[in-house]
Nucleic acid binder design. Structure first.
Lengths: 256, 256
DNA sequence: ATCATAGTCGTCTTCCTGACGATAAACACC
DNA sequence: GGTGTTTATCGTCAGGAAGACGACTATGAT
């Protein structure tokens, strides 16, 4: 077969799936929707849908994101009009196992979205319901032996694997980039940022060392001037995300 | 439109493109093939081809790699029989701009391959020729102002962008993983490994600090017992890649 | 007033890194 | 055989980053 014969090629369906992560109540949560039709009817799945014939992959992901959550994503690679609350969007990976969808050959380009806590999930046009679920709960299927408690049904298709890859990407990327601020509102305190790291990594961080680290990393945070007491205790300085996208030196995830 | 209607979906062609990198004569080089047919006839392009109907994406990439180079790739995610010289293979990113191929809608899943210097490029079955080209040369198109010298024709399609993404992935990944050993033969010296880092990053590294660093990182290198003088000078100890895949602490790329 | 909570500033020790001197073991050449 | 060159390897030292943790500050709750 000629390597590029445009007249004879196996047709594929191409979709985008979204791993939308946020931090709620000290836990890393993902957006899942309930499937209204077979296969996997009634099971939870990642939001997603077909890529349209004249649509770029990132644009398809952003469109699905708006449809499912109302969030306006901002893909650094595809500059958008920047309309208000821009969540972070980036391509994650592509999944094309021949058997991943029992109906047909579907190649899915997964995208990762990091959003602040604000939005309440919005049900789609169908009878689908949507919710934020802690990722620990969604991925507990392959938990260690001796786990007790009810295990929810696993995610549809290979979405557990996609979600796990997205979570791992987020966990590693906040180490060396300023992406953790994507989980925060436009103005936030050092403590709020620390709780993001703690929730995403699932560890406890020393507040004093964390404060020294983030305020000492050039370009990470810029003071906005105000203070807040919304977390209780002494008023905390408010910051905005600085221009730096790569942190040098990086934040260090405590080992094990 | 229902988000998953298997009977009505826009058909896409799905291909894999390969960014095959190696280090030759102190330079990071990529494998490129000459296109024998329009569009971009006569121009250099990344090797690649269609994904077959019952083939996983990683398997398609490994197959194309064998067809084009004879290399047997080893994708950590898709364990293979491990037949001899296993190059490193990983998925890079997916490119699906509607206009990226003038003939039709093609979504290409790019893969990154890191290989030792050994193999000579093997021409494909067609009249295509293949060669190793320094990435600096292939990507010089958007070089700074005042560049002199002949600029080769840019790569076909969006392959310059794909190559740039692959190079950047390799540059950053050897920082915190042991992937640099994928550029080395099974047994190598500390100096050879250092020259890999120097070629990929385009910097000079202090041999003494580098030696201390890599021999002191647990799991990175294991002595094989032998020595060699193939680089001239005092005999150097031979090592193999250790089991560690993540380096802690990471290698630090000197800033600017 | 007292306590609890959260934020912020310092100190100290340990480890890592970059800069660089010194030595060792091969080869090329005269 | 000396001598120089090349590469490898070990050691030393100063500066900086990070973890552990003490101390103090400014709010709200009781």
């Amino acid at each position: 077969m000629s390597p590029y014969d445009p007249s004879a090629f196996p047709p594929f369906a191409v979709t985008v799936d979204l791993v939308v992560l946020t931090v709620r109540r000290h836990a890393l949560c993902a957006l899942v929707v309930r499937r209204g039709e077979p296969p996997f009817q009634g099971r939870w799945a990642l939001p997603g849908g077909f890529v349209r014939p004249d649509e770029d992959l990132g644009a398809a992901a952003a469109r699905e994101l708006v449809e499912e959550t109302g969030l306006c994503a901002h893909d650094p690679g595809t500059p958008l009009p920047e309309a208000g609350n821009g969540a972070h969007l980036e391509q994650l990976a592509t999944y094309g196992d021949p058997g991943r969808d029992p109906r047909m050959r579907v190649v899915s380009v997964a995208h990762l979205v990091l959003a602040p806590d604000l939005p309440a999930p919005r049900a789609g046009g169908d009878a689908n319901s949507a919710r934020w679920a802690p990722v620990d709960e969604l991925l507990d299927q392959e938990g260690g032996p001796g786990r007790e408690g009810e295990q929810p049904a696993p995610l549809a298709f290979d979405h557990a694997r996609i979600l796990a890859d997205g979570v791992e990407r987020a966990r590693s990327k906040i180490e060396y980039s300023s992406l953790a601020t994507a989980f925060c509102p436009p103005e936030f305190t050092v403590g709020e940022l620390r709780r993001v790291y703690e929730a995403v990594w699932g560890v406890a961080l020393d507040p004093r060392n964390f404060h020294r680290k983030v305020t000492g990393t050039p370009g990470f945070l810029v003071p906005s001037g105000g203070t807040t007491t919304r977390q209780g205790g002494r008023p905390a300085q408010l910051f905005r995300a600085g221009g730096a996208t790569l942190l040098n030196p990086p934040m260090l995830r405590p080992e094990v």
